[in-house]
């Protein structure tokens, strides 16, 4: 029996009829052969009712259930909400599937290019630069991965995004002159390695704090909705029933957009 990565197989299944999803986060790191990691599958889903239906259909076929999260519906996906599912494979291994259509910090134009560029490929992953932006999370461990992903970029882009001080120092003489990034400016000006390290650490901490604040807003906005999901044990229901009930609960108590994210989307 052919051994496969279940999340790669799911990606191909979701994309069988049309371009529907792109691998993101940890499984994209595996796709780019950076590391063996990620027990969960994360995808950027095309923001359309048809894409949602294709994903729901495949998940239903595999016996998946919802985990508490937004319904897989463009009304909430468009507001940056995430949808979460889980099932167990034939070997009783836990398979978790998470979806967003508007990953944080990624310009909408990049998402358009992602799906337009995918053409007929079934196994598609978010491009490295968008992946790096997604990984600027509140989790410290994501920043080491960013450093590895940045090596996939051109020198001009790597120096703007890497978290590796040695790479900043190595690239600065050739491509650091015009950068406004504090760590690069420090390297370019000859301020020394310690200053470069400090500027990178400050940048990472700022990004972590920003993401934590963003998530706190969503958590607050979802409070009533989560309680309704728990009270109704909605995630115990079969997928389609759960989807309908989650939509009803979300219509009552989950705002489609969170204020800060709406403003950010308008700016972009």
């Amino acid at each position: 029996m052919r051994v496969e990565n279940i999340y790669f197989a799911l990606t191909e299944a979701f994309n069988r009829e049309a371009q529907t999803v792109a691998l993101a986060s940890g499984q994209a790191v595996v796709f780019y052969r950076i590391a063996i990691m990620s027990k969960d599958g994360d995808w950027v889903i095309r923001e359309s009712p048809e894409a949602c239906e294709r994903v729901l259909r495949e998940l239903e076929r595999r016996g998946a259930r919802y985990r508490i999260g937004a319904p897989l519906d463009v009304r909430w996906l468009a507001g940056g909400w995430s949808s979460h599912f889980e099932f167990f494979d034939a070997s009783q291994r836990r398979v978790r599937c998470d979806f967003v259509s508007r990953p944080p910090r990624v310009p909408p134009a990049s998402l358009v290019a992602l799906f337009e560029g995918a053409r007929d490929r079934a196994l598609v992953a978010v491009d490295p630069e968008s992946l790096i932006l997604m990984k600027r999370t509140q989790r410290a461990k994501d920043y080491a991965v960013i450093g590895e992903l940045a090596t996939l970029l051109s020198p001009e882009r790597e120096i703007e995004l890497t978290t590796d001080p040695d790479r900043v120092l190595a690239l600065a003489p050739a491509v650091g002159a015009a950068s406004r990034r504090p760590a690069v400016q420090a390297a370019w000006s000859g301020a020394g390695r310690r200053v470069v390290v400090t500027r990178l650490a400050e940048e990472a901490d700022d990004l972590q704090q920003q993401d934590a604040a963003r998530l706190a807003m969503y958590e607050e906005a979802a409070r009533s909705y989560i309680e309704a999901c728990r009270a109704g044990a909605l995630t115990d229901l079969p997928l389609r029933d759960a989807h309908a009930r989650l939509c009803e609960a979300a219509e009552r108590s989950l705002p489609t957009h969170v204020a800060q994210e709406s403003r950010r989307a308008d700016v972009e």
Partner: peptide, 27 residues
């Protein structure tokens, strides 16, 4: 409970009632 998405800040206690009990259809 969550490694990604906007529910990542929610603790395990916050989603305990939503724990999935699905199994493979063949098992």
């Amino acid at each position: 409970p969550y490694t990604h998405g906007v529910f990542a800040a929610i603790s395990a206690a916050g989603v305990e009632a939503g724990r999935v009990r699905s199994r493979s259809p063949d098992i």
